[in-house]
Design a binder for these strands. Structure first.
Length: 320
DNA sequence: TTCCGACAGTGGGGTCGCAAT
DNA sequence: ATTGCGACCCCACTATCGGAA
C-alpha cells in the first residue's frame, strides 16, 4: 500500500520556473490500483472504499489492459463546483443504491501516476510522471485528468488565482517539477495555496478547554448580524497561541451572562457545556466557506478587532 | 549553537453506526 | 426513540523535541 503524498500550507513560490500549478479539489483523496482483473480503491489511510464508488470501475476499461496505480481525488459536483458537503452523502455508503448514484454522481480527478505495468514511478520527477499519465489518455466518462499550469507564466497564474477566488474554489496546489513522489510525507515540494475568506464575528460565548487547554478556553462561539439580528455562526478552536488564550479567557469571564445571546434556540451540540457572554467582543476569523447550516468551515482565529463595534459585524456576501 | 521538520495535541464541520439511555 | 460517543472523512494551528545544518 502506497500512502498518498501530502502538501504543506504555503504560498506562491518565488522561483516559478521550477513549479507547476494544479487546481485543488475538495473531495476525498483516493489511490486506485487498476488491472485487467478490476479496480481497487483505497482511502487516505489505506481503507478500501472500492464498493462506495462504483463509478471508478470504469478505470479498468480506460486503461486498456495496463496495470497502474493512480493518485487522485473523488469529487462530487454541485452546479459545476466541487462540493464536499454533497460528497458526504456518499462517503459512508458502500454499494450505494441507484437513486443515490444518480442524485450524487462522483468523478475521479486523476493527478498522478505512481506505478505502471509493474514499474514503480515514485522516483521519477513530477513532469515525467505527468507525461506518462497523460499518455494513458484516461479522461473519459467519470474520469478526469486536468492539465497543470507551469507557474512561470505570471499572467496566467494571476488569472487562475482570480478565477478560483471568483468561483469559490478551494485553491491551488503548487508542485515542484523535479520532485519525487514521497509516500505519506508532507513535504514542501507540494504547497497548498488556499482561498481563505475573512469574516468579522462577535464572540457570543466559549467552551472550556481540555488537556493542556484545561483552565482556559477550548473554543469561542461566534455570531454575526444578519438583517438586524444576531445569528449563531459556529465555533473556532484554533489559531490562538498561549498568550491569546490567557487574554481571551480573562476578557470573557466578566462578560458572562446566563442566557444565549443569539436569535432562536441554541443548537444542542453547543448548548450543553457552553458559557454565554454579552456580545461585545469583536474579532476576525479566516475560514474556507459557509456550511448549509450557516457555520464557518475550517475556521481559525485571527485576533480581536478593537476597531469595530459589535453592531458593525454583519454578514459578508456569499453566506448560505 | 540555532533552526527546521515531523509529530502530538488541541480545536472545527460533517456523516454513519452502535451502544447506552 | 433519542442521545451520546467514537470512527471516519475534510481540516487549521501551536507547542515540542530531536536531528540537521
Amino acid at each position: 500500500m502506497i500512502e498518498p503524498m501530502l502538501a504543506v500550507t504555503g504560498g506562491l513560490p518565488d522561483d516559478p520556473e521550477n513549479w507547476a500549478l494544479e487546481l485543488k479539489w475538495d473531495g476525498v483523496r483516493a489511490l486506485a490500483e487498476v488491472g485487467p482483473e478490476g479496480v481497487r480503491v483505497l482511502a487516505r489511510r489505506g481503507v478500501p472504499i472500492t464498493s462506495t464508488y462504483p463509478e471508478l470501475g470504469a478505470l479498468a476499461d480506460l486503461l486498456a489492459g495496463h496495470r497502474a496505480v493512480l493518485d487522485g481525488e473523488i469529487v462530487a459536483f454541485d452546479r459545476g463546483r466541487p462540493s464536499f458537503e454533497r460528497l458526504q452523502r456518499r462517503m459512508h455508503v458502500p454499494d450505494p443504491p441507484r437513486r443515490l448514484l444518480r442524485s450524487v454522481p462522483v468523478r475521479y480527478v486523476v493527478f498522478d501516476l505512481l506505478e505502471l505495468d509493474g514499474m514503480p514511478l515514485l522516483d521519477l520527477p513530477y513532469v515525467q510522471r505527468r507525461a506518462l499519465l497523460e499518455d494513458l489518455e484516461l479522461a473519459a466518462g467519470p474520469v478526469e485528468v486536468p492539465p497543470y499550469l507551469p507557474a512561470s507564466d505570471r499572467e496566467q497564474v494571476r488569472e487562475l488565482l482570480e478565477y478560483t477566488a471568483r468561483e469559490r474554489l478551494e485553491g491551488l496546489i503548487a508542485k515542484r517539477l523535479d520532485s519525487r513522489y514521497q509516500p505519506g510525507r508532507r513535504t514542501d515540494a507540494w504547497q497548498k495555496i488556499k482561498n481563505f475568506r475573512a469574516q468579522e464575528v462577535v464572540v457570543v460565548g466559549w467552551r472550556s478547554g481540555q488537556g493542556r487547554r484545561e483552565g482556559t478556553l477550548g473554543s469561542l462561539l461566534l455570531g454575526v448580524h444578519v438583517r438586524g439580528s444576531l445569528r449563531y455562526a459556529g465555533h473556532v478552536g484554533t489559531g490562538f497561541d498561549d498568550a491569546a488564550l490567557d487574554d481571551l479567557t480573562a476578557r470573557l469571564r466578566p462578560l458572562e451572562r446566563p442566557s444565549w445571546p443569539c436569535e432562536g434556540v441554541p443548537p444542542r451540540d453547543v448548548a450543553r457545556d457552553a458559557h454565554w457572554v454579552e456580545p461585545v467582543l469583536v474579532g476576525e476569523v479566516a475560514f474556507t466557506e459557509w456550511t448549509a447550516d450557516g457555520r464557518v468551515r475550517h475556521p481559525s482565529w485571527r485576533g480581536l478587532r478593537s476597531d469595530k463595534s459589535p453592531e458593525e459585524v454583519s454578514l459578508h456576501e456569499g453566506a448560505a
